[in-house]
Amino acid sequence: MATRLRSVPSLLGACAMAAAALWPLQAHALFGDDEARRAIVELRQKVEANQKATEAANAEARESNAATRRSLLDLSNQIDQLRAELARLRGQNEQLAREVSELQRQQKDVQAGVDERLRKVEPLRIDHDGQSFTAAPNEKRDFDAAMELLRKSEFGPASAAFNGFLQRYPASGYRPSVLYWLGNTQYANRAYKEAVDSHRRLVSEFPTHLRTPEAMLAMANSQIELKDPKASRRTLEELVKAYPNSEAAAAGRERLARLR
């Protein structure tokens, strides 16, 4: 029994010593769990923070992508609108080009018409029978037409054409030539009195014209045909005196010699 009692304190001491030995381990285990919990909490917080940051970044990225898609859609719409506007402008440009081309054609036609009308009325520079003058296109046309009839020996129509010319163009530069050829057509038509009158008008109105000596010689011929040799002689004498160096005067001298 005593032995058993003595062993009790020893047992208690051993237990105390064992407890003392275990205390640091328990304390260490206790404090290690707290740090682990804190680490876990911090890790969880970091994970949550990262998740939030990731979600925020994803949300921002989604918003950015959505904004980009909207911008691209707007840009695509603008491009479509610009293409449509470009097509419309091209159509307008083509229409304007056609209109301008048509206007240019019309302008050319108008200009050609104006030029044609001007050619019909614009005075022409004429050199005829040793004289220079201006004449309207229709004036030249009518003279040429009368001369063409004369060349064809159509003396009746030619005489009428020359008479009509004098009535239409009394102050024409062609007048002395017309009087000369009118007298010749009248002579060819045996209208000798009218021929004398036409040639006398030429001699009176245009004494310096190159056709005047020839007109005097022709007038003397008409007077012969009218059975008026005295008048013919006087005309030939006036011819020789006024135009002694002309070919008509040389012919007139020969005829004077025959008349004597």
Rank of each mutant, 00 (worst) to 15 (best):
Q104S: 11
R200E: 03
L166V: 03
Q95K: 14
A66V: 06
H128W: 09
A257V: 03
Q104R: 10
V41R: 03
H199Y: 06
R151G: 15
G164D: 13
Q81E: 08
Q106T: 11
P213D: 02
K140E: 12
G32M: 04
K230I: 05
R83S: 05
F206V: 03
T212Q: 01
H199Q: 04
S153M: 05
L226R: 07
L259A: 02
R141F: 11
V178T: 06
M1W: 13
R62N: 14
S10Y: 15
L239D: 00
V196M: 00
R175T: 06
K52A: 15
H128D: 08
T212N: 01
V100K: 13
A161I: 07
L256S: 03
G113I: 07
A248C: 04
R117N: 11
L96K: 06
R201E: 00
L22C: 03
R258K: 10
A249C: 05
R83D: 07
R255V: 09
V100Y: 08
A242K: 15
D142G: 03
A67L: 07
S10N: 14
K46Q: 13
M1Q: 11
S222Q: 01
L259R: 00
D34Y: 12
R200H: 09
R6C: 09
E148K: 13
L202K: 01
Q131M: 00
D74K: 15
K108L: 11
Q131W: 00
N50H: 08
N58G: 13
A56R: 09
E139S: 04
G130Q: 01
V178N: 03
L12I: 11
K52C: 07
V100G: 08
K193P: 10
R38F: 04
R4V: 11
L11F: 13
A20D: 04
T208N: 15
N245E: 08
E42D: 12
R258D: 11
R4K: 12
S7V: 12
S153V: 05
S222C: 14
K52M: 09
Y192S: 03
S101Q: 12
R69F: 10
N65S: 14
P207L: 01
G91I: 04
Q107K: 13
L179H: 04
D74A: 12
R105Q: 15
R98Y: 10
R98V: 14
Y180E: 02
S132P: 06
D228K: 00
A20N: 04
